[in-house]
Amino acid sequence: MDARILLVEDDPSIREVTAIGLRAAGFEVDTAADGAAGLERWRQAQPDLVLLDVMLPRLDGLEVCREIRRASTVPIVMLTARGDTIDVVVGLEAGADDYVTKPFEMVELVARIRAALRRRRSTAEGGAGAALELGPLAIDTAGRTVRRGDEDIALTRTEFDLLVELAQRPGQVLTRDQLLDRVWGYDYLGDSRLVDVAIGRVRAKVERDPANPELLVTVRGSGYKAVR
């Protein structure tokens, strides 16, 4: 596995040892010490995944995240302080796919990065992709595209996988735990806010009125389901 990772982290020790650990795990690692430099490196290197500290000098991590999302659907994993719950939600709403809390052990970090990369790979290399329909949406799982009429809708990989998970089983309720397991690869007690925020982001892109969703519906006390 030689995926290229851009690590944006201001603390030199953390940056260096994290880079060592990721290289040892088989990744190619590029680093940047602040937000502006990170954005610059991302433009030049076009990495397969961005690992982004939230608290960064010059340009903060959330801003970097929003900036990248404007142009790209590259997987973004945020490094956040544990318990800073607002940070987590703001980071996810800014477009991050997942987050890892500090302090972290390399094993945890590598596992989260692999899960984020696997999402892309599994569907990209799935070959026999199928065409799904959900309301006015035409979903091509092989080409990873979503169209509404003639209009292309750009979804991140996480958003796309989430939409496909639900669209494949119209009418069937998937719990947050099931979605965390299938889309994010958490088999035990993932953060259900990942699901809720991602659902919100998908709705904002595919629903006519995101405040009154018709395609991805909340099932109280259980989870979500797709309505064809």
């Binding site: 939600v89 709403e93 806010r193 809720d196 919100g200 998908v202 904002a204 995101p210 006390g221 259980s222």
Partner: peptide, 21 residues
């Protein structure tokens, strides 16, 4: 599910960041 599980419904749709938890 009528009593408790309401806060997270429709948490998306660009809602305020602090409102989820």
């Amino acid at each position: 599910g009528d009593v408790l599980d309401t806060a997270r419904d429709d948490a998306g749709g660009g809602s305020d960041a602090g409102s989820a938890p």
